[in-house]
Amino acid sequence: MDERLPLIVVTGFLGSGKTTLIRRFVETPEGADSGIVVNEFGEAGVDHRLLVHASEAVELIDGGCLCCARRADVAKALHDLVRMAKTKGGFSRAILETSGLADPAPVIATLARDPWLKAHVRLASVVAVVDAVAGIGNLERRPEARRQVAIADTVVLTKGDLRAAQPRAALEAAIRAVSPDARILDSQDENFRPRDVLGGTESFAAPPSPFLADAPEHEADVASFTLPLDGRVDWPAFTVWLSALLHAHGDRILRVKGLLRTTSSDQPLAIHGVQHVMHPPTHLSGAEAGPSFLVFIASGIRKAEIERSLGRALRHLTMASA
C-alpha cells in the first residue's frame, strides 16, 4: 500500500478561482485534514492550521531550462508539511496552490528529482482551474494558461453562474484543444464535490484515454495528438528513443502519456511524463487495457515528426540488437 502523502497541485490563471475551490474543500469536514502550501498569503485567504507559506523561489540547476528548474520554495514547504503530518498526525493530503502565472512543470520536476520527497510524497493530481468568463480568452492569448491546462489531468470550470460566462461546450472545446483527455468538471454542477478533485485519491499516472481525435496543430503552439502503436513495443528500443527525445525536446513536450504492450512484460503499462521528467510506469491488468497508443501534448512539434522518428528508431534499434 502506498503510504506517501498525496499531493494535489492546484494551478490556474490569475483570478480563475483556485482559492475559492480550495477553501470550499478545506471548510468541509472531509477536507479539514489537508495541509496547504501557498505562494502568497493574501491569495489563499484560508484560515487553516496547516498552512505553509512559500515565497516563490526558482533555482535553475545545471544551467538547465526553466521547466527543470527546482522550486526550492516548494521543496522546503513540502518537507515542512511532511514533518508536520508525521508529528501532528490526522493529516491526509497536501494541496499546493501555485500563483496564477506559475508553470506547474518545475513543481513536478522538483518532486520527481528529490529522493526524500519521492519517498514521502505522491503526486495525486494536477488540477487546473479555468473560469467560464475569462478562460477562453486566457487560453487563446496566454501561453501560461495553455501550459497549465496542458499539464493538468483534471480541469475544474468555475464562475459558470455569472452572466458573462461562455457556454460550457465552447469552454470544453477550448480545453480539449489543449488537453484532449483531461477530466473536466464544473464546480457549479449540483453533483460536484470538491473532494472528487482535491481528495487525493486520484493518481496523476492513471492510464490515459485511448484514441482521441487529434487537436488542430498550430505552428509554435500547443497541439495534442495520438499515435496508435501496433503489436508489442520493444521496450529497450522504445526507452532509448523516448529518453533521447525528452533530452533533446523535453522543453517542447508538455506531456507524454500512453498505454503500451511491451516485449518485456506480460502486463500492459501506463507511462506518464511532464517535459523532461518521466514517472515510473504503472502496471495494468490485461483486461483493463486496450491497444497500445501514445498521446503527446507538444509545442512546435508536429505529429508527423514524432511518428517518423519513432518508426525509424524502432526499426533501426531492433535491427542493431538482433
Binding site: 528513443w241 533521447a244 527525445l245 533530452h247 533533446a248 525536446h249 512539434i301 515528426e305 514524432i306 517518423r308 522518428s309 525509424r312 528508431a313 526499426r315 533501426h316 534499434l317
Partner: peptide, 10 residues
C-alpha cells in the same frame, strides 16, 4: 543528440 533528425537513426 536529436532523434527528430533523420540521420540520428539511420
Amino acid at each position: 543528440v536529436d532523434p527528430l533528425a533523420d540521420a540520428f537513426f539511420a
